[in-house]
Amino acid sequence: MHSRFALISLLSTLGLASPAANMKMKPRDLLPRLPDPGVVITQCASPGMLALAYDDGPYQYTSALVDILDAAGAKATFFFTGTLYGCIYNQASAVQKAYQSGHQIASHTWTHPQNFGSMSGDQITQEMQQLEQALANIIGVKPAYMRPPYLATGGSVLPTLGSLGYKVITNDVDSGDWNGNSVSQSQQAFQQAGTGGNGHIPLMHETYDTTVNQLTPWLIDWAASNGLRLVTVAECLGDASGAYSETGLPGNGQNSC
């Protein structure tokens, strides 16, 4: 009984709630809130961070991008596909390099379907599981994060991804590289977004030379000059240990698409 009143007194002193409310609180209510599967997340959970995030790889620039990031001590998230720009197995060494360098590997589906938002739950599941198996074969993990192709979250997308345990990422800054924006236009998008408030999760694509070799170095300098840490999406959401739902997965011997 004494310990109970001592806990209530401590919580009241910390200003968490009134004693009456604290008596109803559960232990999980006092823990940091981690991302929920199947819920759209657009930005970081705290200020002072920038989560560089690249879609549509692996591609011919993946290895060079990892080198640029590593040289700056920056971490990023790669939303990989299985077959969008050739078979993922043909870029297995680049995928392994990114993973071994401590960057987050996440899913962008197997084929990057244009109709992702209107696909059935079974079709979405197949898209996700095919990439899961490829990543198990290449790096031995199953990602817990994904970004939907074309940022489509309607129809069966969120319920299905939630049932599969995926944390769904979109963005709050668009570099516009996919739409032909110049590097200076992309830079302006970040400057307009600013460095206040919670950290940004941008939409960028590693399939553009200018994004890899011009925009990324500029972002590294921009972050440094504004005191921002360059982290993975999982870390910027306070979920650094939750980037993968399974590790040490056995492969099935497949090495082609």
Rank of each mutant, 00 (worst) to 15 (best):
1 M>V: 11
2 H>E: 12
2 H>I: 11
3 S>Q: 10
7 L>A: 14
22 N>I: 14
23 M>S: 12
25 M>S: 06
27 P>S: 02
28 R>S: 13
31 L>S: 04
31 L>W: 08
33 R>Y: 00
34 L>A: 13
37 P>H: 07
38 G>Y: 03
38 G>K: 07
39 V>E: 08
39 V>L: 02
40 V>I: 11
44 C>F: 04
45 A>Y: 03
47 P>D: 13
47 P>L: 10
49 M>D: 01
51 A>T: 08
53 A>C: 14
56 D>S: 04
59 Y>D: 12
60 Q>S: 12
62 T>H: 04
64 A>K: 14
65 L>M: 15
67 D>E: 12
67 D>C: 03
72 A>R: 10
72 A>K: 03
73 G>R: 01
79 F>T: 02
81 T>F: 10
82 G>S: 09
84 L>I: 03
85 Y>T: 04
88 I>N: 02
91 Q>C: 01
96 Q>D: 05
98 A>P: 07
98 A>S: 12
99 Y>R: 00
99 Y>P: 01
99 Y>Q: 02
100 Q>E: 15
101 S>E: 08
103 H>I: 10
105 I>S: 05
106 A>S: 15
111 T>N: 11
111 T>V: 08
114 Q>D: 14
114 Q>W: 04
116 F>P: 02
116 F>L: 00
117 G>E: 12
118 S>T: 15
119 M>C: 09
120 S>M: 09
121 G>I: 05
121 G>N: 09
121 G>A: 15
123 Q>I: 00
124 I>Q: 03
127 E>N: 13
127 E>S: 03
128 M>W: 00
128 M>Y: 01
135 L>Q: 05
135 L>M: 13
135 L>K: 07
136 A>W: 08
137 N>E: 10
139 I>Q: 03
141 V>R: 08
143 P>W: 01
146 M>R: 03
146 M>N: 00
148 P>H: 08
148 P>M: 07
152 A>D: 13
152 A>R: 08
154 G>E: 13
154 G>Y: 07
155 G>L: 12
155 G>E: 02
157 V>K: 02
158 L>G: 08
158 L>F: 11
159 P>R: 12
161 L>S: 03
162 G>K: 01
162 G>S: 02
163 S>N: 15
163 S>H: 14
167 K>G: 04
167 K>R: 15
170 T>K: 01
172 D>I: 08
178 W>S: 15
178 W>A: 13
179 N>S: 15
183 V>I: 15
184 S>N: 14
186 S>V: 04
186 S>E: 06
188 Q>I: 04
191 Q>C: 02
192 Q>P: 05
193 A>G: 06
193 A>M: 02
194 G>A: 11
199 G>V: 00
202 P>C: 14
203 L>M: 14
204 M>Y: 01
207 T>W: 01
207 T>F: 00
208 Y>F: 15
208 Y>S: 02
209 D>M: 04
209 D>A: 14
211 T>R: 07
212 V>H: 00
215 L>Q: 11
216 T>I: 08
217 P>G: 12
218 W>F: 06
218 W>H: 07
219 L>H: 05
219 L>I: 10
224 A>G: 12
225 S>H: 12
225 S>Q: 15
227 G>D: 09
227 G>P: 04
229 R>T: 08
232 T>H: 07
233 V>F: 00
236 C>Y: 05
241 S>F: 00
244 Y>K: 06
246 E>C: 06
248 G>H: 02
250 P>L: 05
250 P>I: 05
252 N>G: 11
253 G>I: 10
255 N>V: 13
256 S>Q: 15
256 S>W: 12
256 S>D: 14
